[in-house]
């Protein structure tokens, strides 16, 4: 479904060249649920934009659905974004002052067919927001907005769903609801690529790709046992840090209780 070889993406930033992607090899198969993790600036968003046909690589090979992205025309890329891919963003990116239904209709406008409101309503129903069809983004909660955005992404029945920090602006509970929808969509056979830096979101995927400085540093499949182990590890490493901090604080309190005269200022 997605195949990348020696993918490079360079940006000119003033006088220096930024290597946002520095030789990425990657293959994602139909039906996978992939999480891409990494610190900000690691190149994960850039990789997503390339996979999403929003940008073209500087060099290297990128194939999507068996077609070479660099060989595709602007028209073909637009068509791919329209019906093959679906996007979900961290900040929802809904059009303001426009109803949920109209927002979901936007991709259909660019599908060169008669616009079917029924299709849009079905997509809204899929995320459980049909009752909110006439509400505008400002009248909805963040979780609802993200669900509308998911409805917009799936309205054209894409094969591949790209999500860039979809839970980043949401609280844990609504984040879980959103992830639940992703799991359902995945179960229906949609391939999902999810960019995040939250470990507990990433471990929900079948495969975790870790990036640093424009390169893939780790690429592992995870099963249920490993998933739990990772969470435990994360918690224990967090516990370790917490304990260290607590110890440091205790020591500081201890010093405060018996201040040395020369330390006072």
């Amino acid at each position: 479904m997605i195949r990348a070889e020696q993918l490079h993406k360079h940006y000119q930033m003033g006088d220096s060249v930024v290597h946002a992607l520095d030789g990425v090899d990657l293959s994602i198969k139909q039906g996978e649920f992939v999480a891409i993790i990494g610190a900000s600036g690691s190149g994960k968003s850039t990789l997503m934009h390339l996979i999403g046909c929003l940008d073209r690589p500087t060099s290297g090979l990128l194939e999507i659905n068996g077609e070479l992205v660099s060989a595709m025309t602007e028209k073909q890329l637009a068509a791919a974004r329209n019906s093959y891919l679906g996007f979900v963003f961290q900040t929802f990116n809904l059009i303001n002052r426009t109803s949920a239904l109209e927002n979901v209709l936007v991709p259909l406008v660019y599908t060169r067919r008669a616009v079917q409101r029924a299709t849009a309503k079905k997509a809204l129903d899929r995320v459980g927001l049909l009752s909110r069809a006439s509400h505008t983004p400002s009248e909805m909660s963040g979780g609802e907005c993200q669900r509308v955005a998911i409805a917009r992404a799936i309205v054209n029945s894409p094969r591949l769903l790209l999500a860039d920090e979809p839970t980043g602006n949401l609280d844990t509970k609504t984040g879980d609801q959103i992830m639940q929808i992703f799991h359902e969509l995945h179960a229906e056979g949609i391939t999902i690529v999810l960019v995040t830096h939250e470990m507990d979101v990433a471990v929900q995927a079948d495969r975790i790709i870790s990036m640093r400085d424009g390169q893939i540093v780790e690429d592992t499949a995870v099963d249920q046992a490993q998933r739990e182990q990772i969470l435990i590890d994360a918690q224990s490493s967090f516990r370790k840090v917490f304990d260290q901090k607590a110890a440091a604080r205790a020591k500081a309190n201890d010093t405060d209780a018996h201040p040395k005269p020369e330390a006072a200022s």
Binding site: K75, N93, V109, Y110
Partner: peptide, 16 residues
């Protein structure tokens, strides 16, 4: 600007 970005992301051509 963002709206334009979204429209392009969901399949609008530059001509659209």
């Amino acid at each position: 600007t963002r709206e334009i970005g979204v429209r392009i992301a969901v399949g609008a051509r530059r001509f659209d």
